[in-house]
Amino acid sequence: MLKVGELAPEIDKLATDGQRFVLSRQGGLCTVVFFFPKAFTPGCTVETRQFRDNHVELALAGASIVGISTDDHRTQCRFAESHKVPFPMIADDDHSVCRAYGVLWPLIGVARRVTYVVDPGMRVAAVFHHELQATKHRDDVLSFIDERFRAARPPAVPTAPRSAGALSLGPPSSVRLPPDVAPQPSPASALPGAASPGAPPDSDAPAPPGAPAPPGRPS
């Protein structure tokens, strides 16, 4: 099997969607390449269905996926159709891809249950191998893609909480109005009896205890 950091061999084969799958053209965050022994067997069916069910989640993270087994193309197409697989599946009936990736069982001539995560530079970023626990591959891949996706995202800029519909414009002193726009009165100044900014105090209003009386008003 290949190891993390090694260069992944090119894959260029006809897939079940009728298009040629070329690994080096995938781009995105990474490509998940999962090998499985035989179509329509219980473990391979479970594993393929799990990747199918999480295909949208992986795609949103920028990851593409391809499934490969040593079945012939016709069998692989029937397998993909019967389970409504939305990603390409490859029939490696000549064993060329399985040999290149070191996953071919030498005596029985089928692929081992190995999953590789390949980065856009064609380097192996992760390797998962569970022959009996088919469900572990999906779990390991989701965990790895989640960490890789978070690491690739720019850090979030913290923002102060504000009421719905309000725009954060900073402190009032930092907001400058154009010269021809007059400032609007605040809600408090619009109340009846409220003094406008800069108006003289009400001469009839009682002065606070101990405060000097305004000019012209008896103390």
Rank of each mutant, 00 (worst) to 15 (best):
P86C: 10
P154L: 13
L2I: 11
T48R: 05
V32I: 14
A199K: 09
P208I: 04
P161R: 11
G198Q: 13
P187I: 14
K84W: 10
S168N: 15
D94C: 01
G28P: 04
P158T: 00
P208S: 12
C77H: 10
I108H: 07
K13Y: 07
E57D: 11
V118I: 15
V114K: 08
K84Y: 13
E57W: 12
R20T: 11
P183L: 14
A134D: 11
F87L: 08
T75M: 07
E10N: 11
A213H: 14
K13E: 04
V103A: 09
I145L: 10
R99L: 13
R112L: 10
A80S: 09
E10P: 04
V56D: 08
E6C: 04
P209H: 10
A182M: 09
V32G: 02
V157N: 00
V56G: 01
A152Q: 13
A134C: 06
A63R: 06
C44G: 04
D17M: 02
V33A: 03
F87G: 02
N54L: 06
A190N: 12
A100N: 05
S82I: 02
A188P: 00
E10Q: 15
A160V: 07
G170Q: 13
H130K: 06
R78F: 11
D17P: 00
P208K: 15
P172R: 15
I65P: 01
P158D: 00
V127L: 13
L177I: 03
K3I: 08
L2Y: 14
V56S: 05
P187S: 12
I11A: 03
R74H: 07
L7F: 13
P179W: 06
S219L: 10
V22C: 11
G198D: 12
L29W: 15
V103H: 12
A151R: 11
D180Q: 07
S82W: 02
P185G: 02
L142D: 01
G193M: 11
S143T: 04
F79C: 01
V33N: 01
V124R: 12
R150W: 10
E47R: 07
Q184W: 03
D72T: 10
V124P: 08
D71E: 08
A182K: 09
P9T: 14
A39F: 02
Q26N: 05
T135K: 12
A134L: 03
P179T: 05
D53F: 12
S189R: 15
A63M: 05
A213M: 14
R153S: 05
P212R: 14
D72S: 05
P106E: 13
G102W: 12
D12A: 12
P206F: 15
A15Q: 03
L191E: 13
P178G: 01
L7Y: 14
